[in-house]
Amino acid sequence: MKEHGKFAPLFFVGPHIILFIVFILIPSIYGIYASFTNWNLVGSPEWVGLDNYKTILANSDSTFYSQFFNGMKNTLIFVGLSVPLMIVIPLMIAVALEHKEVKFTSLFQTLIYIPGLVSISAAALIWSLIFNKQLGVVNNMFGSEQVWTATQPYAWITIIIITVWAGIGGNMIIYRAGINGVSKDLYESAEIDGAGPIRKFWNVTLPSIKFPLIYTMVMTTAGAFNVFAQPLMMTDGGPRQSTTVLMMYIRDLAFSHGESIAGVASAMAVMLGLVLLVISAIQYYIMNKNATT
């Protein structure tokens, strides 16, 4: 029997390790390091200690401070509005699709899944027109004069609508698979106990799909924190920067046409990453605890 040579494993896992080091490990470490410097993407960064963090967190005279808090606030608003809908709506659809007497399920599923394959920029072009003041569908249908993308709260509503429209297909399929895997005996014994459809959902379906729920909730939240395309294309951050999310400020500071302020942008990115990590951990903890007790 021939064992593999000493260097054979290196051949199989080595190439990916190099990719991992170059495109994940080094940039992650450098991203944290840069947040303590005055890096401008071009020159060599100079260590400034906690200055960037002091500026964005405590110096209320600085524009970076107001950008950071406005961006973080808007990102959290987006997460708070979009994530519950991105969980509840696909769950309702999955339950309806798994109803034993409903037919044409693959047609419904396809129609709902397709927007997920539409790139967000194409979707934004179409939806912008739908919400357009003079030419759009919405105002024509409802006879309203609303300038949707330039007035609050409508600007947020348009952003949330396009996000939910484009984003629920994946979660829907995960929930369908989960509900499909629930043993039919559980439902039958619940029925014998006289449980109606609502109690069956709460007592049988929900506890049985605990893992898919945790998984989708954590993943959807992580995605929502990185929101960028929808506000950029639908409202361009307006009106009066009320939908400018943190990712838009980070990109502007680091990559705009003037001199790059990558150090401050990195500090903002690290803060965003930290908030995301903490929230994911809390979500995981609460969901896991609730589901086991």
């Binding site: 940039p27 992650s28 450098y30 991203g31 980070i250 990558a262 990195s266 990115a269 990453g273 990590l277």
Partner: peptide, 27 residues
């Protein structure tokens, strides 16, 4: 150290990727 290596890399990859965005551009 195969599994240790694998799960270390997996753990690192959960790190929020917004942090490596700007240095990735530099690379």
């Amino acid at each position: 150290g195969r599994d240790l290596l694998f799960f270390t890399l997996l753990g690192i990859s959960f790190f929020p990727n917004v942090v490596n965005l700007i240095p990735s551009y530099k690379i």
